[in-house]
Write a protein that binds this DNA or RNA. Structure first.
Lengths: 231, 231
DNA sequence: AAGTGGTCTAGACCACCTT
DNA sequence: AGGTGGTCTAGACCACTTA
């Protein structure tokens, strides 16, 4: 039954998708060691297909492999986070300039539907879903260009930083700003206003980074405080 | 002796680097099937380390893996080529805006040295070297931003299309234009002229794409002619 | 139905870390 | 030296293709 969905798929592909999901859903924490023997237990396969899955996930940037040391979930510091957001900005800024002209009314409608669903998810505090829809929104825009390779790069850059957002959440301000920004972006697309679209997209990503970095620092500070209190 | 350079490296890493080189140097042609059994012979290892190398190379986009079908060198049509050049433009355009202000005289000097060496390589018709230096030039510029992840993406986008350029070469016009463009780009950096730099970089990449696509069509046409003559 | 070639398993091997 | 855990090998297994 659910086998039907797995027809023609190999074990390393299946376990790669499962491990990826276990990482971006936060089951494996950033920095966490991924021992083959434990994964063997968890997924009921032998070492090799799991190793192959890990090789691919390294290619996606989700994990780090060291020779004779094995795999661990990529640890994301503020600097790395910044690098990923810069890459997003580069991609989204450029493709925004390519896209505003070609967007159809159907595109605009899809984007509005995504925003509506995202607002519900924000209200419900369902951050997994908020993040899914956020990626869907931005990927849809880049996708209008027809450059699926660029969309893949964008997805990777989102996936790599996703565990952090899941852990730290969105500030109340960002919860308000996100749909607001998205609406403005849709308007610029509907009006085929390329220059404004690019500006909005890149500002939007800046805020998203700033907000996440702040949330991280807040938690860092409270941890530091706890440690001090113990002394 | 040469073992010293391989200390602490595993077989799958070594063979990954060798296969990558065999692809970007054109030893394996685009579209060519990579059978594990043949690679086992060629590199003197068993199947698994070779398979692991292939998994990683898929992550880099150099090869395509299909379940139960194995690996082949990515076949690059004009559409895919275009997608890669668009990604380059996105990255280089954006990072050009981030970089002009921070470039030091040492950066300018390094870039001039690269161009000088590239001119020699062009005169000698040594296209492997021309391409190495071209990547070095563009990677250096993006590298000024300090975003090594962006540099890695850029390298991948270059590597994937490199076999094509190696096969089709540069038109005489492009052989002239390339160093000329590079000089103008360096001048814009030296003068911290961000707007001009971005414009130059993206125009330069457009020409590079147009030239390669033309060279490809020329060869396609001559093949078509040959086939017609046989009828 | 046989052949080809990709995939998986079990266990040996070996690099690195700790005592 | 012993332990842990990553890496590699040989061969079995199995999916897909051709006849």
């Amino acid at each position: 039954m659910s086998d039907a969905f797995n027809l023609g798929r190999t074990n390393y592909e299946r376990v790669r998708d499962i491990i990826r999901n276990d990482i971006i859903s936060g089951h494996f924490q950033p920095g966490e060691r991924l021992k083959v023997s434990e994964l063997v237990e968890r997924y009921g396969l032998s070492a090799m297909p799991i190793r192959e899955a890990l090789q691919q996930l390294q290619g996606e940037g989700l994990i780090v492999l060291a020779a004779n040391k094995g795999a661990s979930v990529r640890k994301i510091d503020e600097q790395f986070l910044w690098k990923m957001y810069e890459i997003r900005k580069a991609l989204e800024f450029y493709f925004a300039t390519q896209v505003a002209d070609h967007a159809t009314p159907a595109d605009v409608e899809s984007l509005r539907a995504i925003v509506a669903r995202q607002e519900q998810a924000i209200a419900a505090g369902d951050w997994e879903r908020v993040l899914d829809l956020d990626l869907a929104f931005h990927a849809h825009i880049v996708g209008i260009s027809g450059n699926d390779e660029a969309v893949n790069l964008l997805k990777r850059a989102y996936d790599v930083t996703r565990p952090l957002r899941l852990r730290f959440g969105f500030s109340p301000v960002q919860q308000q700003r996100m749909p607001h920004d998205h609406d403005a972006i849709i308007d610029a697309i509907a009006q085929h206003d390329t220059a404004r679209l690019s500006r909005l997209v890149s500002g939007h990503i800046n805020w998203a980074f700033t907000d996440l970095a702040n949330e991280m620092r807040l938690e860092d500070d409270s941890i530091r405080k706890e440690l001090q209190e113990k002394e």
